[in-house]
Simulated assay, not measured.
Amino acid sequence: MPTTPTARRPGVLRRIARGIAVPLGALASLSTIAIMIAIAIDVIVRNTSGQSVPGLLEMSESALVATVFLGLAYAGVTNSHVAVDLLTEALPRAVSRVLIGVAWIIGVLVSAGFVLATFERAVESTVSNELRQGLVDWPLWPSRWLVVIGFAAFLVVAVVNVVLIVRGEPLLGEDRVDPDLAAAQQARQQVPERGPEQASEGGQS
């Protein structure tokens, strides 16, 4: 029995990338929920008492950082990042894969630069105990480290995708097959094509 894409066991690199990205994606989702709750509470309190809740705005800003940067790796693992594939879809597959590989190599270089730059900034922020002054003094250095973690996780995903391109394997997210779509395709392959004689008999009956 031929092995279907859904039956393949993910390799070590895929498991590592998903093991890093999925928990971070879950945290990004939780931070989004936290922002929604904080905004709702702040609106209710402001409309009833005329004053904002101290710290909610600052907390929402930090949660927004978590939502954006902790979700980067998950978007790369699920292949759900923004992409314009009008050109690559029209090219031969071999040429398309080369261009995608070049794009991911550039992604590795850019991500590595971001990791180094944000790491240095996070260290400076931690040493100086950087604060945001508002209704409360809110520490900014934890958010700086969230940016570093997000870029570092995305760097891992980019490196894994480069390795997969070199091996000629599907990228992260491309190996996920919709069960309904796969079943429909298999059913179409199993239906025998009707010959001219069968078609004419069907029309006479």
Results as ranks from 00 to 15, higher is better:
109 L>N: 10
118 T>L: 13
57 L>Y: 03
107 G>L: 02
82 V>G: 12
123 V>I: 14
42 D>G: 02
121 R>C: 03
41 I>E: 11
101 G>H: 10
161 N>M: 11
62 S>Y: 07
189 Q>M: 07
162 V>P: 03
120 E>K: 13
84 V>Y: 12
191 V>Q: 14
60 S>A: 13
100 I>P: 04
5 P>R: 00
1 M>N: 00
140 L>M: 15
98 V>Y: 14
134 G>R: 06
165 I>E: 13
48 T>K: 07
97 R>S: 14
40 A>Q: 06
64 L>E: 02
73 A>E: 09
48 T>Q: 09
160 V>L: 11
187 A>P: 04
160 V>I: 12
131 L>W: 05
190 Q>T: 05
64 L>H: 00
73 A>V: 05
12 V>K: 09
135 L>G: 15
151 F>E: 10
21 A>W: 09
74 Y>S: 11
16 I>Q: 01
172 L>T: 01
66 A>F: 01
158 A>G: 04
11 G>I: 08
174 E>R: 01
176 R>H: 05
179 P>S: 02
167 R>L: 04
143 S>R: 09
89 E>C: 14
201 E>R: 10
60 S>L: 08
170 P>L: 11
145 W>D: 11
34 A>G: 15
86 L>Y: 09
57 L>T: 06
21 A>F: 07
35 I>A: 04
9 R>S: 05
68 V>E: 04
190 Q>K: 11
94 A>L: 05
19 G>F: 06
123 V>S: 06
75 A>M: 06
200 S>T: 11
81 H>D: 13
83 A>M: 15
20 I>Y: 09
137 D>C: 06
110 V>G: 08
141 W>A: 15
43 V>M: 10
147 V>N: 02
68 V>Y: 12
182 A>N: 03
186 Q>F: 00
116 L>E: 08
50 G>H: 05
20 I>S: 06
153 A>I: 05
110 V>D: 03
148 V>I: 10
43 V>P: 01
3 T>D: 00
204 Q>R: 12
52 S>H: 08
204 Q>Y: 10
124 E>K: 15
100 I>R: 13
157 V>K: 03
77 V>L: 11
27 L>M: 11
1 M>E: 01
32 T>S: 14
1 M>S: 00
131 L>S: 05
28 A>K: 06
62 S>D: 04
21 A>N: 08
178 D>K: 02
7 A>T: 08
193 E>R: 09
173 G>A: 07
86 L>I: 14
53 V>P: 07
189 Q>G: 10
37 I>C: 12
195 G>H: 05
141 W>S: 15
137 D>Y: 08
19 G>Q: 03
145 W>H: 15
79 N>I: 03
61 E>V: 04
27 L>D: 02
28 A>E: 04
83 A>G: 14
22 V>K: 06
78 T>R: 09
84 V>E: 10
63 A>E: 03
147 V>M: 13
